[in-house]
């Protein structure tokens, strides 16, 4: 049986107390929320923190504040996010993303904050210690070489969060709290295109809130590509959000990509789409723009060239769904369920 290494366990009751513990313990302490990302990593000895600081009993981490926008506590489980009243109607892209993370059981455990801070993934890294030893380890942990591209100066592990691209497209930001106070950052700015140092979150900061702007007149969607209907991380995530004028043309739009880089990111397709109607030609051009930004590497499931090849088509699905096309049959074939 795979086992966790020994560690010390702290279970603070407030954000302030958790922040104090993090500061006091330094880099040996790691936050644990749902544990669905951290614990497998610890069992595989990718991480071996001396102290686990649990957020499960921290007050306020499951807050839901409804106003013009919506504020979601970072400690809400993905199942709780999915079940949040009105979320599916107002932020369908987030609902679709959260609904497709892992499995039903894991969504009862994994949190929104945890999904946003998900460790980057790589088929040379997400392996047992014995396996990684057999390749002489890799740049991300215990080694020097990035085996994905041996000439690479940086780690090419993949951002594999589903919620981040969906939330980036929705224009969300996150609140980070530490002993030094709190700050809000646009979600896109939480990420860095570096498989090792993939978050701009400072050590000691806790992601406490996800702040969603007003969604009136906005519509959103998330398309996830993966092998199976459950379990799998994305090998591509396309999130699109658009504000529609009464005449059906787009006032404002954002298209974000996940799982094709070390960070989730906004593409420039949003600017292109502004002021246009979603004709087949416009969709095709936007999809081409999006696809040109996708740089998948050979470190996830599926053939890497194929992954690159289907980005445009998947982007098209997202935009066609926003146009109002009936995409249920395509969803059923790809996601194995209608969403």
């Amino acid at each position: 049986m795979m086992r966790l290494p020994w560690f010390r366990f702290e279970s603070p009751r407030s954000v302030a107390e958790a922040a104090r513990i993090l500061e006091g313990e330094g880099p040996g302490a790691v936050l644990i929320a749902g544990g669905t990302d951290l614990l497998p990593n610890m069992k595989r000895r990718q991480q071996a923190p001396q102290v686990l600081v649990s957020l499960s009993r921290v007050e306020g981490m499951k807050a839901v504040e409804d106003g013009a926008g919506l504020t979601l506590g970072g400690g809400l489980t993905l199942a709780e996010v999915i079940g949040t009243a009105g979320l599916r109607a107002r932020y369908p892209g987030l609902w679709q993303a959260a609904s497709q993370v892992a499995t039903a059981q894991l969504r009862n455990m994994g949190t929104l904050g945890g999904n946003l801070c998900l460790d980057t993934r790589c088929s040379y890294y997400d392996q047992n210690h014995e396996w990684r030893k057999a390749i002489g380890f890799c740049m991300k942990r215990d080694g020097e070489t990035c085996w994905v591209a041996t000439a690479s100066k940086r780690c090419l592990a993949v951002s594999s969060t589903d919620c981040a691209p969906a939330l980036i497209a929705l224009g969300a930001s996150v609140r980070l709290e530490s002993t030094a106070g709190e700050r809000d950052v646009a979600l896109a700015d939480l990420y860095r295109n570096d498989g090792i140092d993939y978050l701009t979150r400072r050590p000691g900061e806790i992601l406490t809130r996800v702040l969603l702007p007003d969604a009136a007149e906005w519509t959103s969607t998330y398309w996830k590509l993966r092998r199976r209907g459950s379990f799998d991380f994305p090998v591509l995530g396309v999130a699109a959000a658009a504000k529609l004028a009464p005449d059906g043309s787009i006032t404002e739009a954002r298209v974000a990509l996940g799982a094709v880089s070390s960070h989730p990111f906004l593409t420039r397709a949003g600017e292109f789409l502004a002021g246009k109607r979603l004709t087949d030609e416009v969709i095709a051009e936007a999809a081409r723009m999006v696809a040109s930004r996708a740089k998948p590497m050979d470190n996830t499931d599926f053939d890497v060239y194929w992954r690159k090849e289907v980005v445009a088509e998947f982007t098209g699905y997202a935009l066609r769904e926003r146009r109002g096309d009936d995409m249920d049959a395509v969803r059923l074939r790809t996601a194995r369920r209608t969403l």
Binding site: S123, D126, Q127, N128, W131, A134, I135, G136, R227, R228, G229, S230, F231, D232, D301, R336, R337
Partner: peptide, 18 residues
Amino acid sequence: ALVHRAPSMLEYKSITAL
């Protein structure tokens, strides 16, 4: 090195109920 690509239940793919 010559290693198994995916010695895990996540990456060695098998069909789910869905």
